[in-house]
């Protein structure tokens, strides 16, 4: 991968990541400590609630607009985060996970079978069949491409987004339709209108933290939790039918497409 393209892909992933640790986002709401008090009507919805959660339309397009808006309000105004010099690696050997590792690692992180991550037309595996080469894989048997391209293809960022969005939707749908097998849902509370009961609640923080632990293998910082709470506010402001559902997908998406997730 050429340095220029690696940096380009890295910058895109950074830009997509609403949860960047730049210290300039909104602070963790003070209400965090008071969360446990809410309950009752806001308790976890059953299957009906799940269907209600999924009632929103044109979520993907709206979600991207919200992500863009959230970036615009970021403390750094879209500029890349400043990394203290003492943090720099002399090796600078950051590597894109590429097709096979992305598939295996996202499958593990989301608790989904690899075949469920993304399928074009519900028929063809996005990573193994359709976009393999663009994601840094090979097509030895048919096309004679024995080694991955050294440079990331121009479409790779779009494909990463596409796969991540599909995978996150599949993950959220699985959690809702099969609560007994839910990976992330925990005690997250949402109401009959598809809204989170208490954005400042511990259940929301826990829901975010579960994603960080499974995808990035660490706890989120307060700033990151704050960013992702703000993301919900922005999503809800769009007026969809199921803001909690939309937010859950986009929150997962933002963590899954972060630099930290895509590179190693």
């Amino acid at each position: 991968m050429s340095r220029e393209l690696k940096v380009g892909l890295l910058a895109l992933a950074l830009a997509l990541s609403a949860g960047c640790d730049d210290g300039g986002g909104s602070a963790t709401p003070a209400g965090d400590a008071a969360i446990g008090g809410t309950g009752g009507a806001g308790g976890r919805a059953g299957p009906a609630g799940g269907r209600r959660w999924r009632a929103g339309g044109r979520r993907g397009r709206r979600g991207r607009a919200v992500l863009a808006a959230a970036r615009g309000r970021g403390g750094t105004g879209g500029a890349p985060p400043v990394i203290p010099e003492s943090y720099a690696s002399l090796k600078n050997n950051l590597r894109f996970k590429a097709a096979d590792r992305l598939k295996a690692d996202w499958s593990r992180a989301l608790g989904l079978e690899p075949r469920l991550l993304c399928n074009e037309l519900n028929l063809f595996d996005c990573i193994d069949t359709i976009h393999t080469v663009a994601l840094g894989g090979v097509d030895a048997y048919q096309a004679g491409i024995y080694r991955p391209f050294e440079a990331t293809t121009v479409t790779a960022p779009m494909i990463v987004e596409r796969v991540a969005l599909n995978a996150c939707k599949a993950s959220v749908d699985r959690d809702l339709s099969q609560p007994q097998q839910a990976v992330f849902l925990g005690e997250l509370r949402y109401d009959g209108q598809g809204r989170l009961v208490d954005l400042a609640g511990a259940d929301v923080a826990d829901y975010i933290a579960r994603h960080y632990r499974r995808i990035l293998l660490r706890e989120p910082t307060d700033a990151e939790v704050g960013h992702l709470r703000q993301l919900y506010t922005d999503v809800a402001a769009q007026g969809g039918d199921a803001p909690a559902y939309d937010w859950a997908i986009l929150m997962c998406f933002s963590v899954l497409t972060s630099t930290e997730s895509l590179f190693y």
Binding site: K97, R101, K103, D105, R108, R213, L217, R218, Y264
Partner: peptide, 15 residues
């Protein structure tokens, strides 16, 4: 260790 898991197993260990 984390890199080894990705390179050889294809996925990171769990948290």
């Amino acid at each position: 260790w984390r890199k080894l898991n990705l390179d050889v197993c294809g996925q990171q260990p769990d948290y």
